[in-house]
Amino acid sequence: MYDVGEIRGQYPALADGRAWLDGAAGTQVPQTVIDAVADTYRAGVSNQGGPYESSRRAGSIVGAARQAVADLVGAADPAGVVFGPNMTTVTYRFAATLAAGWQVGDEIVVTQLDHDANVRPWVQAAKKAGAVVRTAGVDPETGALPAGNVTGLIGERTRLVAVTAASNLLGVRPDVRAISARAREVGALTYVDGVHHCPHEPVAVNELGADFYATSVYKWSGPHIGCVVADPGVLDGLAPDKLVPSPDTVPERFETGTAPFASLAGVTAAVEHLAGLDNEATGSRRERLALSRRSAAEHEQTLAAGMIDGLAAVAGVHRYGPSAGERTPTVLFGLRDRTPAEIAAKLAESGVNVSHGHSYAWEAVHALGLGASGAVRASLSHYSDESDVQRLLDAVADLV
């Protein structure tokens, strides 16, 4: 059973009485994650490689975090989980590493739907390598990205396809399976941005066909950590720039500096929290995640339907994005004669937290004709409830 009231009680931040509808920009964390981080510092932790308990504890924390992320996204081997300070930084690292093997005239494919963190690193790396960039456009009216818009650009010289599994701006979910299948036909790699996808859907990286799947832990109730999941065999064939004495093993060769041990303990705690969202979930962690995440997705979609219908019923509200199709519980909208910043500020006065602006979906906001000011984004999380949605609808109606 999915008891959202019980779940909300595990989040200290939600006690402030506000409607936290800004999850797409970062979620709040439950007490178990807070405790995991604090307990690591309380017990004491040392860098890895030492012949004493605090050092061995650090190694155990890192290994547990890799396994937890592998369980969350359905990866076969935790040795394919690479950590970094955030998704943008890790993606830049992979872009530089992969581009080292590109030649003049090679091609990469990016999309207008993506967060700029899955566009700019590849565009800049391609420029340095002399590779050609092909950009898949979205529907300028709805923001939809048909698979054909991407697959039609993939050819024999394509080396990489960068595509989002879910738009952080509009919630749109492209057909990643079809895109990655076409990429594989020509021997190209697929780098999938799952930052907005992973918090809202059960993930199976093999079913998506993603060679690289990126996610941000702070988008699913964990600390500020980014990670990329890949087949260790693929990672083994790559040689990132690294310090001479640092490990040359996979995945360690992709991680620079000392690991953030306390935050990684929080990663494991966050996955455990997600696995327990449904009170009836039993079995292995992967089995518990499967049921809990399905229940959470159903809960979010039910709330999203009410939010979308409710906004549509308010005169003067313009909602962006396709009216149908698979999407996350995220809505982008605007009001006549009000800037996005003004709307967000007024909603904040009513106790409703929403995001506004371009949300780093730089190509998408311009393709939709919104410009850098973007629009207002309301995004639900697994801890959102009906009262959050109603407060948003009431506040928007008051504005109109």
Rank of each mutant, 00 (worst) to 15 (best):
V229H: 04
P322C: 08
T40L: 04
A183V: 02
A76G: 15
F212P: 09
L335K: 05
A188G: 01
F254L: 12
P245Y: 02
G105Q: 05
V317C: 01
R42C: 09
A38V: 14
D175T: 09
L21T: 06
A65S: 08
R56T: 15
E287T: 08
D193S: 02
V186T: 07
T164H: 01
R173N: 09
G130E: 01
A348Q: 14
L399C: 03
A75V: 06
D385H: 13
H200N: 10
G310R: 00
G306H: 05
R288T: 09
A395D: 03
V172A: 09
G194Y: 00
I154N: 08
C198A: 15
R120F: 13
P199F: 00
P12I: 05
R285K: 09
R288F: 04
V45N: 06
L21I: 10
D231K: 04
V161P: 00
D248G: 15
R294E: 11
A144L: 08
T111Y: 01
E386S: 12
Y41T: 14
V109L: 04
L380G: 09
H224G: 11
Y92E: 13
M1R: 10
H197L: 10
T256V: 15
L399K: 03
M1A: 12
A395W: 01
Q112K: 07
Y383R: 06
F254P: 10
A13D: 12
A348T: 14
A239Y: 15
V352A: 03
E386F: 06
V217P: 08
A183G: 13
T88Y: 11
N168Q: 15
R157M: 11
D394Y: 10
A296E: 14
A265P: 14
D71H: 05
V389S: 00
R391D: 03
P85A: 14
